[in-house]
C-alpha cells in the first residue's frame, strides 16, 4: 500500500531531466558531441583548403594546431568522435535488430567501455607527441 504522495514521487518527472537514465545520457551526449564535431569539421575543411594557397601558408595555419592547448583540445575532439562513433553504432543496432531495444542499456555500458579502451590507446601517445615538441 503506498500513499498518494509516494505514488506521485515515483511517477513525477524531475525538472527538465528526462528520467535521467542511460538512454537519456546517450541521447544528450550524442547531440553535444555531434555539434562539437560539426563545428570542428567546418574549421578543418577551411584550414585544409589553405593547401591550395601555398605550402608556406598551410604550414603556418597548421602550425597553429601544434601548441599544448590545441593538443589538449584535439584529445577532447577525439574523445567526442570516439563516443559519437561507438554510440552511433549502438543506435544503429537499437534501430535495426530485434534485440537492440531490450539491451540498449547494456550496450551503453559497452560504448563507455570501448570509449575508455580506445582513449587509453590514444591519449598518452598523443600527449607525448604534443608535449615532446615534435620538431
Amino acid at each position: 500500500m503506498s500513499t498518494t504522495a509516494e505514488r506521485e514521487s515515483k511517477t513525477k518527472i524531475a525538472g527538465t531531466l528526462y528520467r535521467g537514465h542511460e538512454g537519456m545520457w546517450s541521447w544528450v551526449l550524442h547531440r553535444i558531441t555531434g555539434i562539437a564535431i560539426y563545428f570542428f569539421l567546418l574549421v578543418h575543411v577551411l584550414d585544409t583548403a589553405t593547401l591550395r594557397i601555398s605550402p608556406e601558408v598551410y604550414n603556418g595555419v597548421i602550425g597553429a594546431y601544434k601548441t599544448p592547448i590545441m593538443g589538449i583540445g584535439e584529445a577532447g575532439l577525439v574523445a567526442a568522435i570516439v563516443f559519437h562513433a561507438m554510440n552511433g553504432l549502438r543506435v544503429i543496432l537499437v534501430d535495426s535488430t530485434s534485440w537492440g531495444t531490450k539491451y540498449q542499456r547494456h550496450m551503453f555500458y559497452v560504448v563507455l567501455g570501448l570509449w575508455t579502451a580506445l582513449m587509453i590507446a590514444f591519449v598518452p601517445r598523443h600527449l607525448m607527441n604534443v608535449f615532446s615538441g615534435g620538431h
Binding site: 585544409t48 593547401l51 605550402p55 598551410y58 604550414n59 597548421i62 594546431y65 601544434k66 593538443g71 584535439e74 601517445r125 598523443h126 607527441n129 604534443v130 615538441g133 615534435g134 620538431h135
Partner: peptide, 11 residues
Amino acid sequence: GGVHAIDFAFV
C-alpha cells in the same frame, strides 16, 4: 610524430 608530422609535404 603524430600531429607534429603534419605539414604541406605530408598532406
